[in-house]
Design a protein around this nucleic acid. Structure first.
Lengths: 190, 190
DNA sequence: CGAGTTTCTTGAAGTAGTTCAAGTTTTAAA
DNA sequence: TTTAAAACTTGAACTACTTCAAGAAACTCG
C-alpha cells in the first residue's frame, strides 16, 4: 500500500481504479535510516523521493566545512535535485534522512514508463513543482526581508512542532544564521 | 507568429502541425512598456507570462520602502507568481517590465482549455517548472555560501551582458546587498 | 546503567555589510 | 539642447551578525 502518495496525487487529479493498480505495481516503500544519505554531492541524481514518514533534508558543506541545510522535506513532500535529475549533471547537494524515514523512491526510467501509462500524472507533477517553485520564491522573500530574529519567530509561529522536531543547528543554517546566534535568540539575549 | 514559444516548447516535447495551429489560435503577443506592471502586490495572479523579448522582474517593497528584486526573467523565461496563481491568494510580489517587452500572456482559463486539447503540454510545463525549482535551489545555495563580492563576480563571470543590461541597484538587491556596496565592489574599494 | 557522541549555551572580540547624506554622472523626454 | 529624473559614487559612522573557545546538557546504544 502507498496510501500516502495516492492520497496526495488524488488531491490534484483523479485516478481510475486501473490506474491505481498500475501505480501500486510500480511503487515500493523503502526505509532510510537516520543520517543515511540518498544523494551525495558529485553524484548524478536519478531518483525522486516521496516522504511517507519522517524528515529529510538537502544540504551542502560550505567552504568552512560547515553543513548548511537548504531544504527540509517532511510527510507528503517530494525531495530531489531536479537540476541534476534533468540535466544529468553532478549534484551540488547532499540529501539525508534527519529521522528514520519511509520513502517511495522512484527512479527516472520507472517514472518515465509511468508517464507513458498514465499521462495525466504529468499534471500532478506539474502542479506540485509549480507550487514548490512558488514556495521557494517566498522563502527567498523571507530571507531578504526579515532579520535573523524575525525569521526564527516567523517559522516558530507557523510551524512550532517542526521547530521542535529538527536539531537547532540544522534549523539555524536553514534560516541562514549561526547555531550560536540561534541559541542567543532563544535565550532572549539579543 | 509565436515562434519563440513554439521553439521553446519543442525543446521538450514534439508537437503535431495541428497542435501548433491550435496553440497559435490561442496565443497572442502583447507589449509591456518599461516600468509597467503586470502584477501588483495584493492582486491575485491569474496569468503566466512568457517573455519573447525584453526583461522583466519580480520584486517586493521591504519594510524600509526599498525595492528588492527577487527574480529576473529574460527571453524564453516564464514569469509569474505560481503560489498566487494556484491558491487564488493575493500575491506578495510586483512583476514589472525592466525594458520594453514582448510577452505572451496566458490566462488561467485559456491555459486550462489548452491543456484539455493538448495534454502533452502538461509535460512541457512540468519539466520547465522542475528546472526552475532546481535553479531556485542553486540560487539559495549561492546566497548562503558566497560573500557579496563573490556573488557579484560570480554573476559577472557567468552573465556579463546581463550585468550590463539591468540597472545596478536592481542587480544589487537581487544579489542581496545594497546598491552602495555594489558600487564599492565595482570600484575595488572593498 | 554508563561512556561516548551529539547538541546546545555563553561571552568576548571581530567584521562584512548597512545606512545616511551629499554630490556626480547619465539618461530621457519635451 | 535643456531640464528633470534616474542611476551611480563616496566616506564616515554604525550594527547585526559571525567566529572562537570552552563548558554544560541531553541523548543513544552497547
Amino acid at each position: 500500500m502507498h496510501d500516502a502518495l495516492l492520497q496526495h496525487i488524488e488531491k490534484f487529479i483523479s485516478l481510475e481504479p486501473s490506474e491505481i493498480d498500475t501505480l501500486e505495481s510500480c511503487l515500493q516503500l523503502s526505509k532510510v535510516k537516520k543520517k543515511e544519505h540518498v544523494l551525495q554531492e558529485g553524484q548524478t541524481c536519478n531518483t525522486l523521493y516521496f516522504i511517507v514518514k519522517g524528515c529529510m533534508r538537502q544540504y551542502i558543506i560550505n567552504s568552512k566545512g560547515t553543513e548548511q541545510t537548504l531544504q527540509f522535506g517532511i510527510e507528503n513532500w517530494w525531495i530531489t535535485d531536479y537540476l541534476s535529475y534533468h540535466n544529468h549533471t553532478p549534484s551540488h547537494f547532499y540529501i539525508q534522512a534527519v529521522e528514520n524515514c519511509e520513502v517511495i523512491a522512484i527512479e527516472k526510467p520507472t517514472l518515465e514508463s509511468i508517464f507513458i501509462e498514465i499521462p495525466k500524472l504529468e499534471r500532478y507533477f506539474r502542479v506540485v513543482s509549480q507550487k514548490s517553485f512558488g514556495a521557494a520564491q517566498m522563502r527567498i522573500k523571507f530571507l531578504f526581508t526579515m532579520s535573523a530574529e524575525e525569521r526564527y519567530h516567523h517559522i516558530n509561529n507557523l510551524f512550532p512542532e517542526f521547530v521542535q522536531r529538527v536539531p537547532q543547528y540544522m534549523l539555524a543554517s536553514y534560516l541562514d544564521f549561526s547555531a550560536e546566534f540561534m541559541s542567543k535568540i532563544r535565550a532572549g539575549k539579543v
